[in-house]
Nucleic acid binder design. Structure first.
Ligand SMILES: [Mn+2]
Ligand SMILES: [Mn+2]
Ligand SMILES: [Zn+2]
Ligand SMILES: [Zn+2]
Lengths: 143, 143
DNA sequence: AGCCTTGTTGCAACACGTTGCGATAACCCG
DNA sequence: CGGGTTATCGCAACGTGTTGCAACAAGGCT
């Protein structure tokens, strides 16, 4: 049905394993709506199991990204942000001045991405895309 | 004349100072053509002065970015890349599969950036832009 | 249920930056 | 050429991940 269905089975089908640690990461992800940083996820896991180790969490996130359950982009300072259950593919707009961010609909990106595909054969990863700049509010403030 | 002219004077004009440590960073930058990572710059400074401290280098780079002498974007894993003496404004294209990268001419980005400016009042920082995806070569390889 | 294979874990170390703070030294001024 | 102000430095600690490695355990098989 959805991308969360039968994760244990999908892992095993690839020769991977379903472990208590992975169960905790998935439980935390299930309680998230929208975007989370890697560090937040580590904290969330520790709330359930204080013995949680960062390397295990990050490695699990890599696996889940392969399965298509999460995807990541990079926010301010290049830090990882994971997207859970995105309604639709989207990029990100971040204001370097105030730090606010917005989703960038794939329709807004498509002409740009199509151009790169046709001219260069380069397939843009829209989910990973973060565009930095100054938002309308900050530009007016310093007008 | 160029953006390197009279850096000491431009610093002092802003109430900032010209120090031996900053001179070293500038000397390293002057020997660079194109892109460098922050870690590479620290190494370069240490080659001239082994006592160089990372925090001083990164803080100096922040100051030089304010002066418009360098700009940065983020490469793989979100790490900083500094651009020295860019012939022209440009973004970056990075293949997540092979790691190769290309410059993205501002003409290629302009329609996209103009659209965001008109629809959202958001001014894209083209120099900072990194677009990740799969390059033509890698796509053919897995065709 | 017990065995075996091999994917995973946890640890320790590392890489890349960032930040707070007290000591130092630019440099403006008389 | 000193003296004072305050920007900058160096250090130590922290934050966010990543990686190598030895020990562990999931789960397929009998
Ligand atoms: Mn940046
Ligand atoms: Mn990434
Ligand atoms: Zn803003
Ligand atoms: Zn490639």
């Amino acid at each position: 049905m959805n991308r969360w269905a039968d994760v244990p089975g999908r892992l095993r089908a690839r020769g991977l394993r379903w472990t208590p640690q992975r169960r905790v990461v998935l439980e935390v992800l299930a309680g998230v709506d929208g975007h989370v940083t890697g560090a937040d996820l580590v904290d969330g896991c520790r709330a359930i199991d204080p013995a949680t180790t960062p390397s295990t969490v990050y490695r699990t996130l890599d696996v889940l990204e392969d399965l298509g359950i999460v995807s990541h982009s990079h926010g301010r300072e290049g830090r990882q942000e994971f997207h859970v259950n995105p309604a639709t593919d989207h990029g990100h707009l971040v204001c370097s001045s105030c730090g606010r961010s917005w989703e960038l609909g794939s329709a807004e990106v498509r002409p740009f991405a199509d151009g790169l595909l046709q001219r260069r054969g380069f397939a843009v990863d829209v989910d990973h895309l973060t565009v930095e700049g100054r938002c309308a509010t900050c530009r007016e403030a310093s007008a």
